[in-house]
Write a protein that binds this DNA or RNA. Structure first.
Lengths: 345, 345
DNA sequence: TTGAAAGCGATACCAA
DNA sequence: TTGGTATCGCTTTCAA
């Protein structure tokens, strides 16, 4: 705290080389363990590196070599949704183990934010990009095509991706849920979710649900899409709204588990029994669900695994290993006990 | 659009300048809106920028100016803990609004991982660093001191930080909880948590709890520190272990809410009533708690606000605005209903 | 096994 | 209002 010199303590490779009495090329070779120098030289250089506390400037390295950095840009809608924070964790753990760093971008579910973030992050010469969702703005798409780096689109499984893709088939997951609910004897089903640029995976699930329900003779009569975040609170209040405007609803499907928990609380607070008076189904299978007394009917998605798979595909491409360009990571229906028992079980 | 080769389209400033028939200095000035050029020149350059799809190479910019990048390194123990993902969200939102990007580092609660990450991220010339916790390895501390960039240590409030600090007083939060539990008439209290390099904030809370409990004539007789992650599962199994090894326990305090929920489920599964047979107290106040039927006794920490405050302090320093160098963000006890009612209320 | 020189893409500085 | 030249820290290339 004495002399708060805020000077730039940066020791350069030349200084190390000078201290060691060799040329900077020799020092460079030693540091990159490239070989082609004597053990004595190596020891000398390393000694000075330690002594001076030399830290390489990777900016200069990347710049000089005209190659890309070890950064991987990762765009995620938001972290309030536990689902995405788990995906990010999977990505960063795997990436970090191979010497890469995630540069985070929270797009807040808008394509405009995503586009701006893409423009910025590309200017840092990232090694690759991982994006959530299959839809991007036209300008973003153009930049991505021209970037010439690996790109993994996650979340939606997409058999014709920009470059690579890993995710699940959201339509199918909605469809399976719809078929399950029909099998449980529900006909009048409601939906509570949110709407955003990139909430289309949720919309696709809803489409799948409707298809199955209608095919089974039922109807998804009431659908509520709030322009808000998909949290416990919106689930709670969304349910209030939905129930106020309709009667005869037998079951409600939610955009995600958080909203479903909110809904569960609302109906309980009104003295309704679950699943006696009304069925509740979520999506995503939050970790907390596994310790709650009543298992929420939901759909399990291996979030961590999804993130890891995305990172693996990225890493494989970066090291030119052969790699499929799209992967369906799969989901599984969790029957739970917040809907009536299935007829056929 | 004619010859859309998939080649590395990197257009440099010189090329833009050449196309526009001006020097690269002029082009540079236009792009930086520095002024000192005619409107005609500006229009011409911008036209070529659009036409060629020029994206600046910020690596070169930073490098040329010998300044730091717009990156801010953010080290977080893990994202499985909702608490930290909210802190990160607060940080990245605020940082992003001011043109900065978070470079993520998941340290898995070890100082060794943190040190390695610090070494790597410093080589990218970040504008600043945000680290979780007040303890760092000796080498890390040295690198941090020499880095000459703003550093914010979050989570633990620390009145003599490396540079800046924002967090809460964990000892006090444990102490308050201890006093509260004593006030509720508990004397024989247990603890379930985990142990890691950087779980010392939790340990500090436990110290505070013990101090208050012992000062109030009680005892924290059974303390269980698992070497595992602090999740629902470990809360569940930790509780099983704790109860198997002891009798007469009136109340259990957990490292965090997730573990407390796990514990709650365990004791319920054994037919014990809460708070009739045993009291349960968590820490952190998870969002889901607010919609659950029985409010968990806990301690609320404004996670998002903590992250935002950290980003604000960083940004203020980066723009040389005056800024306090440490901030206590505060916490509040949530009485809840998973412990007996307090005597004095 | 070692070193000298050129150059990566931008900006700072000085000159016109 | 413009442009030339040096420069940032490192690697590539070529020569010794």
């Amino acid at each position: 705290m004495a002399e708060k010199e805020f000077k730039n303590n940066k020791v350069s490779l030349s200084e190390v080389a000078r201290a060691a009495g060799v040329s900077k090329m020799t020092a460079s070779r030693v540091l990159r363990e490239e070989g082609g120098y004597s053990e004595k030289t190596r020891a000398l250089v390393m000694e000075k590196v330690d002594e001076l506390g030399y830290l390489p400037n990777r900016l200069a390295t990347v710049f000089a070599g005209d190659k890309s950095s070890t950064f991987v840009g990762v765009a995620i809608p938001d972290l309030g949704n536990e689902v995405f924070s788990q995906v990010l964790e999977g990505i960063d753990r795997k990436l970090g183990a191979f010497g890469h760093q995630s540069v985070l971008g929270l797009t807040q579910h808008t394509l405009k934010e995503e586009e701006e973030w893409i423009r910025t992050v590309l200017s840092w010469q990232p090694a690759g990009l991982i994006l959530t969702g299959r839809y991007h703005s036209p300008r973003a798409t153009e930049m991505l095509k021209n970037a010439g780096i690996p790109i993994v689109e996650i979340w939606d499984f997409n058999s014709s991706p920009l470059d690579m893709s890993v995710g699940i088939n959201h339509f199918d997951s909605g469809f399976d849920m719809g078929r399950y609910l029909i099998g449980c004897g529900y006909a009048n089903i409601g939906y509570v979710g949110t709407s955003h640029d990139t909430a289309n995976a949720a919309t696709t699930r809803l489409d799948g649900l409707c298809k199955a329900v209608e095919g089974g003779g039922g109807a998804v009569a009431k659908q509520l899409c709030l322009h808000d975040t998909a949290t416990y609170y919106t689930g709670y209040y969304g349910t209030e709204q939905l129930l106020a405007g309709s009667s005869g609803l037998e079951c409600i499907f939610y955009q995600n588990d958080a909203m479903a928990f909110g809904g569960l609380q609302y109906v309980k607070s009104k003295g309704m029994q679950v699943p006696g008076d009304i069925g509740i189904a979520g999506w995503g299978d939050l970790p907390i669900a596994s310790v709650l007394p009543k298992r929420l009917t939901s759909c399990h998605v291996p979030h961590l695994k999804l993130g890891q798979a995305a990172a693996e595909m990225m890493l494989a491409r970066l090291s030119n290993e052969p790699m499929e360009n799209c992967r369906d990571i799969g989901f599984s229906l969790i029957p739970g006990s917040t809907v009536r028992g299935s007829d056929h079980s």
